Simulated scan of single mutants.
Amino acid sequence: MSTAAVLDRAVPVTRRRRGGWSWLRGVAITVVTLVFALPVVWMFAAAFKTNVQVTDPTVGLVFPPTLENFANVLADGAILPAMGNSLLVGVVSTVLSAVLAVPAAWAVGRFGMRSTGSLVLVARIVPAISLLVPWYYLFAQAGLVGSYTVLVLSHMFVSVPLILWIMISFFEGLPVELEEAARVDGLSAFGAFLRIALPLAAPGTATAAVLAFVASWNNFMFALVLADENTETVPVALFSFISYASTDWGGLMAASALMTVPVVVVALLAQKHIVAGLTAGATKG
């Protein structure tokens, strides 16, 4: 049998194998998407139901919708100020964390300071709840409990290590020859970072910033202990819908939907940079 005949028989087999793997991959993607999407769909659907309909298992996705839950949540006057507090704390803590963590990540990646980076990683390992009591005592002595300052600082405890360890891989993946050429042209090491490395790492910076903002937006424990009624964030405001005697499921789902919308908008606006950043991290080396 000639070589051409063997190849002609092998091509259909290869195509069948690829087709089988593509089919299995499509099924796996569909299952994973449904697992993650169904709770979100149920939440948005429950936001337009009455409390009776939410707890009735016979009521699915087809029902007469109502805007009463949203009207009650907005009329209560607590959710919008809480969203403003979350936005303020999230933006400030993310910006300050990026200012500190991005240059630190460049230094760790360029100068082989992995041991120093590992020390920062300890902040991600230590349970945050174990720090709340000493934090509360120290901040209370300084008169900062209930202020935006204490919330920003506590959220930076999470955001700085997160941004640092995301950005280290990006800077390690950038060609060092570009910075060396900039140094030859007269730039300092930090000048090469600002003009060469930082613009090239913009997708990674955007990815890290979005993840840090989402982590701050969803943080419940720090605000529950360190905030007061004037600085409480959205997760704490949602907690008020749960009482000892009953739970306002309709109001809780409506408030949760309102809380989810800003995060989705941020993710959609930064989608291009997030995809580019994740792809760059995945193809490093």
Rank of each mutant, 00 (worst) to 15 (best):
M1W: 07
L7P: 01
L7E: 14
D8C: 07
D8R: 15
V11H: 09
R17Y: 08
W21Y: 13
W21G: 05
W21P: 01
W23F: 13
W23N: 11
L24R: 13
V31A: 15
V32Y: 10
V32M: 14
V35Y: 13
A37H: 03
P39E: 10
V41T: 07
W42R: 10
F44S: 08
F44R: 03
K49I: 01
V54S: 08
L61W: 11
L61R: 02
V62E: 09
F63I: 08
E68Y: 07
N69M: 02
F70G: 03
A71E: 14
N72H: 12
N72W: 07
A75T: 12
D76H: 13
G77R: 05
N85E: 01
V91A: 10
V95N: 00
A105H: 07
R110Q: 11
G112D: 08
S115Q: 14
G117K: 05
A123F: 13
P127G: 05
A128D: 04
A128R: 12
I129G: 09
I129S: 13
L132P: 02
L132M: 14
V133M: 08
F139L: 11
F139S: 00
F139K: 00
G146L: 05
Y148A: 03
V152F: 00
H155V: 02
V158T: 14
V158S: 11
V158P: 05
S159W: 01
S159D: 09
V160D: 02
L162F: 14
L164Y: 09
I166T: 13
I168G: 06
F170G: 06
E177C: 00
E177Q: 09
R183E: 15
D185L: 04
R195W: 10
I196N: 01
L198D: 04
P199G: 06
A202T: 12
T207R: 01
A208R: 01
V214A: 12
V214T: 12
A215W: 08
N218V: 06
E229P: 00
E232M: 14
T233W: 09
S240F: 12
Y244K: 11
A245H: 13
T247L: 06
D248C: 02
W249L: 09
G250E: 07
M253R: 02
A257V: 07
V265W: 05
A267F: 13
A270G: 05
Q271D: 11
H273K: 14
H273W: 15
A276W: 01
L278N: 05
T279R: 13
T279G: 12
K284L: 14
K284D: 09
